[in-house]
Amino acid sequence: MANLNASSNRPLSPHLSIYKPIPTMVMSIIHRITGAALYFGTILVAWWLISAASSEAYFEWVNGFFGSFIGRLILFGYTWALVHHMLGGIRHLVWDTGRGLEKETATKLAYATISASIVITVILWVIGYAVN
């Protein structure tokens, strides 16, 4: 604290920005971003549940918002974040057992996470429209 200038002038060690993005690194970043997005997405879940517990009129209004173009876009993003974060989390649980940490396997898992998250999200929405 006393010598703030001396420490702030120190050179930084190589940082995020100088590295070429690699699949595992990108998945790690997306995992954190989707986690943070889901944090705020909790507001949507609580809002939906509270509206159902409040009144029919209020529920219909909230439902109308979720059914609008913007609402659907937000929910689609929320679904993808949820699925991606879950798959990324399962990947972490596998790593916790000491498996799947080899360079090639980890890269394959990274590609599998992003592809599966998109495919599963689309399938979930197709089911959603089918049951409607």
Binding site: T42, I43, V45, A46, L49, I50, A52, A53
Partner: peptide, 13 residues
């Protein structure tokens, strides 16, 4: 706040 709000709504229902 989110946890209590959501749980309260579920219990009320």
């Amino acid at each position: 706040t989110m946890g209590l709000g959501a749980c309260f709504a579920i219990l009320k229902l």
